[in-house]
């Protein structure tokens, strides 16, 4: 539930900066030395091809079943029909679930980003009593199992009257995303030289103004990461939604999806089409951070 995706970020920030020079140097030297044995093309393409089959066949299977007409046995996505999408979107309520999930995802994105930005800035730029304890506590939260918070969180939300509202999900998602988001943002802020802000102060900027004018633009990559992780997480979350929401018009996509499942389910077209609906937003968000991730990781190869 509290998937530690974020960890990859800080680690990746350094090599992007450190690698280029070393790599370029290496490339120049290699031409002279010619001693390093490199894997042949087949040693790369063959295992990679096999792994790609493993990765892509499942996606392909889902898409084929989503678009092929009922009764067809073909494994090629032709002819295409949209009947299954009509069934899930209008008949099974996925249109509504989509809206609910989108609301939860966007609200979690905003609350997580804003709260983590404030806290992360404080952790990076101030020394204050209790900071060490707080940092250790952040790490400890990684051992808290989401499934095990179901009971007490349900109690709290019931007492607050938030059961069967999207706010229970927004709060739960934000709380579970906060620790890693705080660590990530404070790490990013620490890597930005404080002199930049100091220069702004000297020029007469107040601290808040320097923050918004100088620091915030530089933090954009961190905010993209934190925001998209928060969105992906709440879009994907199943257990909280299952526990806190039991009115059908408030269901989120994963809960709706779970109702299409069943080993001997009759409507495989609906199952697959529901899956495609669930996948599209996440795949879009992933495509955005993926590009950013790949450029960040391979910056060395391009810039030199």
């Amino acid at each position: 539930m509290n998937e530690p995706l974020v960890i990859s970020r800080p680690a990746e920030a350094e090599p992007a900066v450190a690698a280029p020079a070393a790599r370029e140097q290496g490339r120049r030297r290699r031409r002279g030395v010619q001693a390093m044995s490199r894997p042949s093309r087949w040693q790369i393409y063959l295992p990679l091809g096999l792994y790609l089959v493993f990765t892509l066949v499942p996606f392909y299977w889902m898409v084929v079943f989503a678009v092929r007409p009922t009764g067809s046995d073909s494994l090629l996505p032709w002819p295409i029909t949209l009947e299954h999408f009509d069934t899930v979107w209008n008949g099974m309520g996925f249109g509504l679930f989509f809206q609910n999930s989108l609301m939860v995802g966007l609200f979690s994105l905003v609350t997580t980003s804003v709260i983590a930005l404030a806290g992360g800035y404080a952790l990076a730029r101030f020394r204050f009593r209790g900071k060490q304890v707080f940092m250790v506590a952040l790490l400890c939260t990684q051992f808290i199992p989401g499934a095990m918070m179901l009971i007490p969180l349900f109690e709290i939300f019931r007492d607050l009257g938030l059961v069967n509202t999207i706010w229970s999900l927004v709060i739960a998602e934000t709380v579970f995303q906060l620790p890693l988001s705080l660590i990530l943002i404070s790490g990013f802020v620490k890597n930005i030289p404080v002199e930049l802000e100091e220069a702004a102060w000297v020029d007469g900027c107040s601290r808040p103004r320097a923050f918004f004018a100088v620091l915030l633009p530089l933090l954009r990559p961190a905010l993209v990461a934190v925001g998209s992780f928060a969105f992906i997480h709440s879009w994907n979350n199943f257990l909280f939604a299952l526990m806190f929401i039991n009115e059908q018009n408030k269901f989120t996509i994963p809960v709706g999806l779970s109702y299409t499942l069943g080993e001997f389910s009759v409507d495989f077209g609906a199952l697959a089409a529901g899956g495609v609906v669930a996948a599209v937003p996440v795949v879009l968000v992933f495509a955005v951070i993926q590009r950013y991730l790949v450029t960040g990781l391979s910056a060395g190869a391009v810039k030199g």
């Binding site: 299977w61 994963p254 529901g274 391979s298």
Partner: peptide, 28 residues
Amino acid sequence: RAVARALVFSPWAVSGVLTTSIWMLLYN
């Protein structure tokens, strides 16, 4: 390489329930 990376990393963003949907189709 860039395309290969994007493709092999892609299941990372997929939820547990969606994984179930996909593999249920594959195993049925």
